[in-house]
Design a protein around this nucleic acid. Structure first.
Length: 579
RNA sequence: GCGCCGGUGGUCCAGUGGUAGGACAUGAGCUUCCCAAGCUCAUAGCCCGGGUUCGAUUCCCGGCCGGCGCACCA
């Protein structure tokens, strides 16, 4: 939205970083009002998604070593192999072309050089125009920023492309803090980095951005969300089915959508409900939001089910322009099991059975004093093979000898040397890998959407004005304080009033410059919901006018009750028309 | 990364081969006083590098940045 970008620049919400040096694409600075608004969005997120859910927050580094991203799949999954057609100049994913035009299934695992070879060898052609792509260079592009940790650059690191891995890698310790009890959630607000090929659209797609993510760890067989608390929330749902049928999003209660509607996963449904109510509260217009269910083919490598929150950020009279605000994904056990596989740590929790179970457990204790001399270096492998066999096939131990296969040859071991035994064991539970639901929000896009949805132009006494209709809770400044004129003691009283209101923690702007109407308009443009003017009547009776941003209506309020009244207006306990 | 268009005070624009002008905004003053009034004054700008030229903000080339389209968005 062009008018908003201009206002954001002029009034200090956000602007491109370092334009004196020519600027760098994809980096933005939040100005005075923008930084405040962003902080307010973050604390509103923290309040709703962490504190109120009973979850704790961590703050992990933005740089982590290469091995972490090997495990997470970002090193391979983020690595795009691009080839450009010499005839029509279209870029394509080279690995996808190879997969499509040969019977090679996992072309992604090849290097750029190998792919170049495959392009020539299999006579791969451009899918757009059919030109041959042999001899064309394959470029490797990883979206992660790479860096060297410490001197000597042998320890390669990357800037995290999402905040989530900081939670997953340290799951074993976080589990300790949760005392090993599922479900538990860990929240994080922080920066993430992606070396985007083509940053666009102000703060919508940048190379350094802010995320707020909650990772909720749970046992799918035991744990259920508090669906009742969001059952009545009406959410604009755009199901996969509706998308395929070329349909429209429709408002449905979470209760119905989970019960019999498109939301398959209870936890995902719960967070769609929480997100809907939260968006409404922070000033996002639900009529310009939709929760879009991912099609199966579209889901990320880790996601089992996913709904994106999308917002329309087009200007008035324009075609809708949907941007992704959040993803609410069931990541299953993907992350934890991968980190477990890549480390020696256990990324599981002990899940106790309702009742202890008694099971027969077969075990072996091979007589190594006999096997060792007999089989030499093979003895250890034989012992391992016996152990496997005991778990899978107890009857193999019923005869005089047991046959196991080692290094391709069958070895007969006297049963008595295996130490085979079947015992009754009482098991109280088992180690399970928790499943993960991840509501992941883009803070910058949320800020942007709040601004777009708050932006309005109307007419006051025949004069056009620009106004940001931010909820009082979100406004960077709660109240502007003006003297009608800066003389006859009005200025002094107004300055005292501003200081008093600041002293009780309210965000106040003092302004005595220019005509009163001009000062109102300045505050309208940055979304300040209330303005107070000290006039001649104030000197007589100790009241001031309080002016409402949205209606421009004014009421007189006693100075002594001002602080309490404004605080109530900010918290939504009081509406202006109740004054 | 490709293509098209663009880059001039804080913002939005006009303009020129001889280093620039408006509107709005901002500051000071006068005036007015509850919704961007008026007057005076002031502050402040040609994206960067190279080339052509006596001289380049202007023309040419390259870069950077922005908008749009394509590709990409794990």
């Amino acid at each position: 939205m062009k008018a908003l970008a201009e206002l954001a620049k002029r009034r200090g919400f956000f602007f491109q970083t370092g334009s004196a040096y020519g600027g760098v694409s994809g980096f933005y600075t939040y100005g005075p009002h923008g930084a405040t608004l962003k902080a307010t969005v973050e604390s509103a997120w923290r309040e709703r998604w962490a504190t109120r859910e009973g979850h704790d927050e961590i703050d992990a580094p933005t740089i982590m070593p290469e091995a972490v991203f090997e495990a997470s799949g970002h090193l391979d999954g983020f690595d795009d192999l691009l080839v450009e057609c010499p005839a029509c100049e279209q870029s394509h994913r080279a690995d996808h072309l190879v997969e499509g035009q040969t019977d090679i299934a996992e072309a992604e695992s090849y290097t750029a050089k190998e792919i170049e070879g495959l392009l020539a060898e299999h006579g791969i052609t451009c899918p757009s125009c059919g030109a041959p792509l042999a001899e064309e260079p394959v470029e490797q592009f990883n979206l992660m920023f790479e860096t060297a940790i410490g001197p000597g650059s042998t320890n390669r690191g990357y800037l995290r492309p999402e905040t989530a891995q900081g939670i997953f890698v340290d799951f074993p310790r976080l589990r300790e803090y949760a005392r090993g009890e599922l479900p538990f959630g860990v929240a994080q607000i922080g920066r993430a980095y992606r070396n985007e090929i083509s940053p666009r659209n102000a703060i919508v797609r940048t190379r350094e951005f802010n995320q707020a993510e909650l990772e909720l760890f749970f046992d799918p067989d035991e744990d259920e969300p508090d669906l009742e608390s969001v059952a009545d929330v009406e959410a604009p749902l755009f199901s996969a089915e509706a998308q395929t049928a070329d349909g429209e999003p429709s408002f449905q209660t979470i209760g119905a959508a989970v019960e019999s509607g498109p939301i398959a996963d209870d936890w995902v449904g719960y967070y769609v409900g929480v997100a809907t109510a939260w968006y409404d509260r922070i000033g996002i217009d639900l009529d310009r939001v939709r929760f879009r269910q991912h099609q199966a083919a579209e889901r990320a490598h880790y996601a089992r089910d996913c709904w994106d929150a999308e917002a329309d950020v087009s200007g008035p009279g324009q075609d809708p322009e949907w941007i992704e605000l959040a993803g609410i994904a069931n990541r299953g056990t993907y992350d934890l099991s991968h980190h477990e596989a890549h480390t020696d740590e256990r990324y599981r929790v002990f899940s106790e059975y309702d009742e202890p179970r008694t099971v027969e457990r077969a075990s072996v204790e091979p007589d190594m004093a006999a096997l060792g001399p007999e089989y030499g270096s093979q003895a250890a492998d034989i012992a391992a093979a016996l152990e496997d066999l005991a778990e899978t096939d107890q009857r193999a131990f019923e005869g005089e000898t047991v046959a196991v296969e080692v290094d391709g040859e069958t070895v007969e071991i006297p049963t008595e040397q295996t130490g085979f035994a079947v015992e009754e064991v009482t098991e109280r539970g088992e180690q399970i890998t928790p499943h993960v639901i991840e509501p992941s929000m883009g803070i910058d896009r949320t800020v942007y959407t709040i601004l777009v949805h708050a932006y309005d132009e109307d007419e006051i006494d025949g004069e056009e004005r620009t106004v940001l209709r931010l909820p009082p809770e979100m406004a960077p400044t709660l109240v502007g304080v003006f003297p009608l004129m800066d003389k006859d003691g009005l200025g002094e009283q107004a300055r005292n009033l501003a200081a008093d209101l600041r002293a009780v923690g309210l965000s106040v702007t003092y302004d005595d410059s220019g005509a009163i109407g001009r000062r109102y308009r300045r505050q309208d443009e940055i979304g300040t919901p209330y303005c107070i003017t000290v006039d001649y009547e104030s000197l007589d009776d100790g009241t001031v006018t309080v002016r409402d941003r949205d209606t421009t209506d004014q009421v007189r309020v006693g100075i002594d009750e001002l602080a309490a009244t404004l605080a109530a207006l900010q918290d939504g306990e009081l509406a202006f028309d109740q004054l």
